[in-house]
Design a protein around this nucleic acid. Structure first.
Length: 105
DNA sequence: GACATGACCGCAC
DNA sequence: AGTGCGGCCATGT
């Protein structure tokens, strides 16, 4: 099954709804979008975003708070920068979830 | 169709 | 705390 526009749209909506300074995980995005167990697809969807997107893709992390990109990669650095710009404390490629995890509601 | 590869997750050791 | 493993699901070879 290809990633249809319905799935992508649901993901975009959820990601776009993550408040500034807060983060969440791929799995959580999938669940909130109404597609539980599809964390990997969220990753694929975000990977397909245009480089000039306005979507706050950087607020999506792995379940343990680590950045999904390999440490040292360009994308990794980019994500760290974007997070710090909005006040999220990142150390060793990891975010303190106790402080920044987004709990909707 | 088998096999490998991910911007993943949870549990067991 | 780190590693491994099975599960997950779309894509590419």
């Amino acid at each position: 099954m290809a990633i249809d526009s319905e799935f992508s749209q649901a993901v975009w909506t959820v990601v776009g709804g993550i408040p500034q300074g807060r983060v969440t995980s791929y799995g959580q995005v999938a669940a909130l979008a109404g597609y539980p167990r599809r964390a990997r697809l969220v990753g694929r969807t975000l990977a397909a975003l245009p480089p000039d997107t306005r979507l706050p893709w950087h607020r999506v992390l792995r379940a343990d708070g680590r950045i999904a990109f390999p440490c040292g990669s360009e994308a990794h650095a980019e994500q760290v920068t974007r997070l710090r710009e909005e006040g999220v404390c990142v150390s060793n490629g990891r975010v303190d979830l106790r402080r920044h995890h987004w709990r909707p509601g």
